[in-house]
Structures are given as structure tokens and as C-alpha cells.
Design a protein around this nucleic acid. Sequence first.
DNA 1: GCCAACGTTGGC
DNA 2: GCCAACGTTGGC
Length: 138
Amino acid sequence: MSGYWLVKSEPDAFSWAQQVANGVEPWTGVRNHMAKNNLKAMRLGDRAFFYHSNVGKQIVGIVEVVREAYPDPTAESGDWVCVDLKAVRPLPKPVTLADIKADPGLADLPLVRQSRLSVMPISRPHWDKLCRMGGWNL
DNA sequence: GCCAACGTTGGC
DNA sequence: GCCAACGTTGGC
């Protein structure tokens, strides 16, 4: 059984376009314990939505976990981890935060409830729903 | 161990 | 640019 996630990035710092250009990218810089625990729970082949925070505020693409958690080279302390993510494909139609908030069925998404969490799990039903909102017929 | 001060994230 | 949420730091 595979897992589903959502990861956030400010496009000014690291964008979906850069993710696509790079292919595989280490997801570094997470400095929050809850987010770290989520990174450690990711398994090879898990999928994640790539969300642009601040600028855009929308889910723009899907990435796949191609390397499970290992020490984050950008952390001096060695207490933090990162994973490697590979661009899979863009959403035909980005799903905006406004779209998500307008849907009562998505009110309990961590994206809505814990706006500051940068790595969060997504349930299978929510994943499917968001994919449909993104333009895929499942 | 409590809590006020402060810094950061992220939406608006 | 402002502010709410919330994690972290530091004094006691």
C-alpha cells in the first residue's frame, strides 16, 4: 500500500518549474518536527502533491518519492531529514487553495487546518478528489 | 516546568 | 504590509 502526501514550497525559493527541470530533487530544509515525522513515513513510490505556497497558492503537480528519508545535508545538527522527489506530471488544471476552501468535504485537510505545516499526509479519498478537481477523470 | 517574548510561516 | 497561528527561546 502506498501513501499520499502534500509538500509545500514557495515558488520564489523552489518552484514546480525547477522541480521539472531538475527531475529528481532532494527535499531539504524541513525544520519542523511534525513535518519531519511525515518525511520519515514516506516510502518509495509514494506520491505527493506539489503545492505553491504564498505565490499561486495552488497544487501544481505530482511528485514521487524516489529515495526514503536520509540526513538532510543542509542541516548542521544532523537532526533533520530529507527525501528525494521526482517530478511525475503537472495537473491539467491547478487546484487553488480557494477551490479547496470552497469545498466543505475538504475542510479537514491539514492544508486548511494547519496552514503552517509544510509536509502532510493526504487520505486516499482526498487524493482522488483533488486529482479530479485537477482535471483527471478517475 | 511555566509563560512571556519573539521569530517564522503563510493567507489575505 | 498586516496579522493570526504556532513553534522556539529564555528568564524565573
